[in-house]
């Protein structure tokens, strides 16, 4: 059989930027247009947060833990966005027939993934802020912010690493079929557990927490908790500076990984002709 010809894509910074904006646009604007989604995106995590807050109250936990739960509940929105809005997205685009159009268009697939990531990040940040606001008011959470800029920097670095991970996963998930749905579904409770969404990861013990640090939210959230809660540093896993260094390494690794896997996925898809194949 004749080997397929691999065509390199022309690079243009302007086209790259346009693609990023074009893909981010429906994420940001479309998500705001569907108001009922905003309601559910805030209401559902708030129900879970409330349930865990009442568990802590039932067992007489210190109030700091209530704050941990509220922050964890807000950060879950990002993880869900990574799973369903990033990792599974290319698979869904394939199912709906859009992926072939993305590939045929003379733009970079990295730009499409980046647009998805930026759009998802902005839309999800709005929801996460509302969850924190509502949760803090409902449960009277006390904050003691050490430095706004340190918090903002930590948050942004966490997002870069997290969405880099999402970009990488989207290529992997694309090569799966029905397994993609099940894997995304599976990567919820175990990640909630190992990332310490509802308790400090220090509670898991050093080695488990160290292993869990491969998930950017684990270390990112631990660092942010140390920066915003009065007793935060007491519950911290590592020094904030070390956690920031881990996030930098994860960011670089995941973005390079995303680039490599995307190219590998394209090559494989072209060679095996599976790019637009839909297996039910």
């Amino acid at each position: 059989m004749k080997e397929p010809v691999e065509v390199s894509r022309p690079y243009s910074a302007k086209l790259f930027l346009q693609t990023v904006i074009a893909r981010a646009y429906p994420r940001v604007i479309g998500a705001q247009r569907e108001r009922s989604w905003m309601f559910f995106d805030v209401f559902l995590p708030f129900l879970s947060v409330s349930a865990y807050v009442f568990v802590y109250r039932a067992i007489g936990a210190p109030e700091t833990y209530i704050g941990f739960v509220v922050m964890g509940g807000a950060m879950i929105a990002f993880w869900m966005n990574i799973l369903w809005g990033m990792s599974s997205q290319l698979y869904w685009e394939k199912e709906q027939g859009n992926l072939a159009l993305y590939i045929m268009a003379p733009n970079s697939m990295m730009a499409i993934l980046l647009g998805m990531a930026l759009g998802g990040m902005v839309a999800t940040t709005l929801r996460a802020l509302v969850i924190i606001l509502v949760g803090s008011l409902a449960f009277n959470v006390q904050f003691a912010l050490v430095s706004f800029w340190a918090l903002l920097g930590t948050f942004l670095l966490t997002m870069v690493a997290l969405y880099g991970m999402g970009m990488m996963f989207s290529s992997i998930f694309l090569m799966l079929n029905r397994e993609a749905w099940h894997l995304a579904n599976l990567a919820q409770e175990p990640i909630f557990l190992f990332s310490g969404f509802y308790f400090p990861i220090k509670s898991l013990g050093f080695w488990i927490a160290a292993g869990a640090s491969i998930i950017p939210l684990s270390v990112g959230m631990d660092a942010m908790r140390q920066l915003v809660f009065p007793d935060g540093p007491t519950f911290g896993f590592l020094d904030v500076r070390i956690e920031l260094a881990i996030l930098v390494i994860l960011s670089i690794g995941f973005i390079l990984g995303a680039r490599y896997l995307l190219a590998a996925m394209e090559r494989l898809a072209i060679r095996e002709g599976r790019l637009t194949e839909s297996r039910r």
Partner: peptide
């Protein structure tokens, strides 16, 4: 797949409870 999800869900509560008590 069938086992990990519910066990992880239970483990979250176990860790929360274990840490506090």
């Amino acid at each position: 797949y069938s086992i990990v999800k519910p066990v992880a869900g239970a483990a979250i509560l176990v860790v929360m409870y274990g840490v506090i008590t």
